[in-house]
Nucleic acid binder design. Structure first.
Lengths: 345, 345
DNA sequence: CTGTTAGCGCTTTCAC
DNA sequence: GTGAAAGCGCTAACAG
């Protein structure tokens, strides 16, 4: 990483007394080179501390060995974990990761996609915003892309996400098995597949156990803390009050906490709560949190592997896969059997 | 972001019936172009959905408009916040961010730095590992770089970090003012400037108030949860036990929590704790956490601004700045006055 | 103002 | 096996 002393292949060639094509050959191991000359080249490279210019190489080969990752909300701890999985897998495969944050804004997303395209990244991993943006055009042009976490409706592209229907189902079933009957769900933006799917799972479980689903127990919209607070207050104002709540993501849960705090409700004595996403903190919150854990790192790795396959596929065989990863219920102390019903009259 | 339909400047030139230099001129607004031809070019670009190839441009200009960011531990929530600040500022300035995670491993760090160099990034923001790596060579070659958070010893380069001495001082003073006398510190890796500085601040406060600093109250090493757990157990086994602890980072604090849990110690009744780094969660942990909050996002933005200046400086005037950002003490419920001493005898 | 020209540093035929 | 030469798509003198 030098500034003024940047050597080129010609310098190496000159020093080793060979042609640039020979240098290129030993670097890329593309053609056999006589051992003796090979050594000369290697020595020359070492002597000059030469490193091939990836920009020039990219221009020539048409590949950058860089992928783009655009996620909607870096302040949601879920995404850094996914990114870390992507980065790890990418690094091992020799890829760099160009990172973008759309802040849940479709315009930003579109701009980022355009920027990545201009920079000629080899592919993109995208956790999209609620409002559809440029990506459909992108995908139609067969640009290598995989959706992660959020699967846009009607997508025919490749996707990696949690099995959110199952996750919602398991979360709800856990509450049902504890004896809860008045179960509510604090839902996120329904335009986002994870939340839609989790709600489906919730419905499935309730129906399976012949439990009523009350309209006023299904509240949501938005994915931010503030959304959770508002919806939480609304939920806690219901009469009769639910004895248990499934919360569709970790930021909403934080908001619900504020509401619970304000209403001085005791968990799990008066209310059981199961959330989404598992962080170290969850164990130290009081009470410790029962949650559905998503395999975040694996999700990232998996998304990269898939993208990598797509990139390397001949344009003839278009690879399209929808991968769903299993989630895990971690039972802790925020869920318990409901308090016995006060006998009225 | 197309695949097969990638047009070049020549296509645009042909369609607009001008030369490529004219096209280049209207794109870069580098020379005046007659309005009429200018419009023709713009129309042609629009018609072809043409976007300049940044790779080719980079090769020619020697600038990529990409910076590298390498951080040591993505699982420490502190860094995603910093990165988000960097990314935001970078985007506004038209820069892309190549993201790398060294996982606290100097070899990874060196590899990442080499990779970034090969990709010809315009500069690097680095939160370095404890063991010094390639970066000293890098900096000596005047490659644009700014250290963030962690300032390597004897650095003559540019840095952006918290005022950690002051932070350690304020944290300790807060405990002293509450009436604590037996105050311990759970320290991180002392090869890392933030931890070293925080310890200095601790010492300063203790001395200022003429409080004894016991050797057995200064325990640490490492920056991971497990390190915090071990050191925590050791600290809680001291006799007499400290009545308050300053914890040098958020992961150590998590470990200390495990130890506290295990020993069934009540906070803040038996022990006051002040940690570092403020997350939403901190409010919902019971008791809510008193912490020193660092201006993470600002740190990232600031690091980018500085790097940007360095990149754009003529190589004559080398810019070198050390910037320290103020931290803030957030007082919550994990700190309180110490329990009255049991009268022995 | 506009077009011609010469590369940026590399890969890759294609003859030798 | 090896080297000469032709670009990848763009910018930047330099003439007109």
């Amino acid at each position: 990483m030098s500034e003024r002393t940047k050597f080129t292949m010609r310098d190496v060639a000159r020093l080793a007394n060979v042609s640039t094509s020979t240098v290129s050959a030993v670097i890329n191991e593309t053609v056999a080179v006589s051992p003796e000359r090979k050594k000369r080249v290697q020595d020359a490279m070492a002597a000059l501390d030469y490193h091939p210019d990836e920009v020039a190489r990219s221009l020539k080969t048409g590949r950058t060995n860089v992928i783009g990752v655009v996620i909607p909300d870096i302040t949601n701890a879920f995404y850094p974990e996914v990114i870390s999985g992507v980065e790890e897998a990418a690094r091992q495969a020799g890829y760099g990761v160009l990172f973008c944050n759309s802040s849940e804004d479709a315009h930003n997303e579109a701009r980022h996609l355009a920027m990545l395209s201009a920079r000629r990244v080899d592919g993109v991993i995208l956790a999209c915003c609620a409002t559809p943006s440029a990506f459909d055009a992108v995908i139609r042009r067969r640009f290598p892309m995989v959706f992660v976490d959020r699967v846009p409706p009607g997508t025919i592209g490749s996707t990696v996400s949690s099995d959110n229907v199952d996750a919602g189902y398991e979360a709800t079933k856990h509450l049902i098995k504890l004896g809860h009957k008045r179960i509510a769900m604090l839902i996120g933006t329904l335009d986002l597949s994870p939340h839609r799917d989790r709600l489906d799972g919730f419905r499935k479980a309730m129906q399976e156990y012949h439990l009523p689903i009350r309209d006023e127990y299904l509240i949501g919209g938005g994915v931010q803390i503030e959304d959770g607070r508002k919806a939480g207050l609304q939920l806690l104002a219901c009469s009769p009050c639910p004895t248990a709540i499934v919360v569709s993501n970790n930021k909403l849960l934080l908001g619900l906490f504020e509401a619970i705090d304000k209403r001085k409700i005791k968990i799990p004595a008066q209310l059981s709560v199961v959330g989404f996403d598992d962080y170290v903190w969850n164990r130290y919150v009081t009470p410790s949190l029962t949650v559905i854990a998503q395999p975040t790192g694996e999700m990232g790795r998996c998304a990269f592997e898939l993208l990598h396959q797509i990139i390397n596929a001949s344009s003839n065989d278009v690879i399209t896969k929808q991968i769903q990863l299993k989630t895990e219920l971690h039972v802790r102390n925020s869920t318990a059997a409901p308090a016995p019903e006060p006998r009225k009259k």
